[in-house]
Design a protein around this nucleic acid. Structure first.
Lengths: 132, 132
DNA sequence: ATCTGTATTGACGTTAACGTCAACGTCATT
DNA sequence: AATGACGTTGACGTTAACGTCAATACAGAT
């Protein structure tokens, strides 16, 4: 049984902490494509996964466009040699970008750690008795 | 001798791959404060470092405001116990956010790695002779 | 039948982070 | 004195990613 239940727009909005406006916007831009019965939207489990991935991309600072592009890469690779090598190129590109970002992140975290140390040291100096 | 030479606006723009408009904008918003002789800007080594940090934040998807806030945390911690503990709180907050981002990043990279494997497998299937 | 709650579609507003002119100054060459 | 190369200040334009109404539909409970 492939998880056949569906989610209302406000269900998803509440679960992911976004507004319904956001979800409608995502559909309007083609980033989501929930089923429509009449005018009402019904989000499937697949839609839900896709939304999760979009929001993950958003937390990384990617544009919706970029997130969608990456998510599209996740689809089972198919096509001829040309297509596959092209896909590999794209993957490498993305990987390079994300790894650079990881490096930036690590550097920033290291900087913050330095400050944290200095801060604790300053605190200890303020109150030598209860230091440590 | 504390590196006393200065950089013109186009020097810095070229070095960091941004436009002069960007640097003027950053100054206008208070994210940079180069020395002014007359109307002309002279960027110091410190300004250069600050710019580097701002752009690092930008690559992480932070807003300029956020980057500036983080950079301000880097200043030698001072003040009383109140101030220092407040600073520690902010540091912890930032760290939590960045660590979540690191997790998201790792997950995305893992997903990409999966696709890459599948892709290489598909390629190998296409040409079993030169498989590897 | 009316009310309540959730849904819908426009349509205009907003913010951040610049881009893109236009018009002008200044200094070193030619 | 004219030509570039570089600098300046407005001021308006642009794009992404929604926010914020307003007007409307529709289904279930009272």
């Amino acid at each position: 049984m492939p998880d056949t239940r569906s989610y209302s727009i406000s269900d998803l909005a509440a679960e992911f902490g976004v507004t319904t406006r956001t979800l409608r916007f995502y559909e309007e831009k083609g980033f989501l494509a929930p089923e429509r019965r009449g005018r009402v939207r019904y989000f499937s489990a697949a839609d839900r996964v896709r939304l999760r991935l979009i929001l993950r991309g958003r937390r990384l600072g990617l544009s919706l466009e970029e997130s969608a592009e990456i998510i599209d890469l996740y689809k089972a690779p198919e096509g001829g040699k040309r297509q596959l090598t092209a896909l590999l190129d794209k993957l490498a590109e993305r990987r390079a970008q994300l790894e650079k970002q990881a490096a930036d992140l690590a550097a920033t975290l290291a900087d913050l750690a330095d400050v944290e140390h200095a801060c604790r040291a300053a605190l200890a100096d303020l109150n030598p008795a209860r230091s440590r």
